[in-house]
Design a protein around this nucleic acid. Structure first.
Lengths: 235, 235
DNA sequence: GGAACTCGATACCGTACGGGTATCGTCACC
DNA sequence: GGTGACGATACCCGTACGGTATCGAGTTCC
């Protein structure tokens, strides 16, 4: 029973679907199945009932889901506390305007609960700099949207919004195409002003919300922040 | 940062000596050094100061020692709670008379603290059956002394007492050798009746206190009991 | 009722990491 | 300055983790 295995189990137990859980964990389904089975033999208990109707939790599985969540939370806090004891007490987060809603509130709250006051500074930037001042050293970590030039940066996917075309009417479309060769596009899942219509585009790569930081950055708060942000961006 | 790595760190932080910690973990020193270094880069903090005078904890290391201990304790309790939820609620422990002092009290106490009352039954046996009725199915796990016939059993070392020769006087020795080719021997670290003297024997394999259980036994309480017993036998 | 689809399990493979032994570098300490 | 102790380094090997391809069972739909 390792923390990684518990993360796997939590994913499966929350999705109740091996395929989706594997996608969420950025891995393929077979090793995930195997890991869960190993966890079951290790604990000596059946955790999941696999049936054609879907995956359900056994009593042991339900218990483990609760326990594992708190254990993983505590493990995250261990990282933060050690970082604080090591003296790294400030984390500056850069954000684009359009993701302000959910991105930073939760991680900031988690950090503020830590005993030795770690400071999280939020720096909002406009859309002209997708890296929110990462390269300039203005922020330690950026919550932003791909794609952008990733050289020298480490990028971690947080969420993939499907993309839709923003429309007002036929004339508008024609005008838009005439002007710059395309119609307006926006990630779905947001509320747009009332008179606008959005048509989902299925054959287009979804818009990725990502966390990015400078490749060699040793600030230990980055990793824990990414973990918390990952959880926060999953509704 | 995995639980295994944290166990490694706790061992080193408690021993303040890589070699002894490696011995305690039943592994060699180089991979242990490497694992600790990896943990340090993973956490982004220096945990230990290595100097010729010895190993000392940094502030970050001291914090991690505390945090890791509680996290590992909680991980052990997760195992127990899952086992309880799966319905395995009874563990019978067999013990030899001479190890009663420390073996079972601590694990039993830990188990009694668990919410869904897991029952730990203690069964003491005399020295005629070193496996305390393991093969007969009378107990789930035995705390006993090696060596004995280990076929079909899994054996886990808990402690290695150096062996001493028990003496009263020269005549006694001579008599003993004449009688059965040897003098009396006993593991050290125990209080013997006052008039007896004990001479440590250095060239003799130490007496191993071990936990043993039937090889295919799936009772999930066994593993957590072994972990707790291991900790309890280290003073 | 059979064809197609869904989804977890299985088989198999390559690599990476965790473990081992051998050895080095560097301090204390005679 | 020689020697011993101890952590770091170099190197090797086996396991185990993650990958792709495929199977098998169960549901759905025509």
């Amino acid at each position: 029973m390792e923390l990684r295995t518990l993360r796997y189990f939590v994913a499966v137990a929350e999705e109740l679907h091996f395929g989706r859980a594997a996608a969420r964990l950025h891995m393929s389904q077979p090793p995930l199945s195997r890991a869960i089975k190993q966890l079951e033999t290790d604990l000596g208990a059946l955790l999941l009932r696999r049936s054609a109707a879907g995956v359900t939790l056994t009593p042991a599985g339900a218990t483990l889901l609760n326990e594992a969540r708190t254990l993983l939370d505590q493990a995250d806090q261990v990282r933060v506390r050690v970082a604080a004891a090591a003296g790294a007490a400030v984390l500056t987060v850069g954000m684009l305007g359009d993701s302000t809603d959910r991105g930073a509130t939760r991680p900031a709250a988690v950090y503020r609960r830590q005993p030795p006051g770690i400071e999280v500074r939020i720096r909002e930037t406009d859309l002209t700099d997708p890296t929110c001042g990462l390269r300039a050293g203005l922020v330690d970590i950026a919550l932003t949207r791909a794609p952008f030039d990733e050289t020298g940066l480490t990028v971690h996917d947080l969420r993939a919004d499907p993309v839709g075309a923003v429309l007002r009417g036929v004339q508008e479309c024609v005008q838009a195409v005439l002007w710059n060769g395309t119609v307006g596009m926006a990630p779905l899942g947001h509320d747009l002003p009332g008179e606008l219509a959005v048509v989902p585009l299925t054959d287009m790569a979804p818009s990725r919300v990502v966390a990015a930081w400078n490749e060699g950055d040793t600030n230990p708060l980055i990793r824990s922040f990414v973990q918390i942000a990952t959880a926060a961006y999953r509704h």
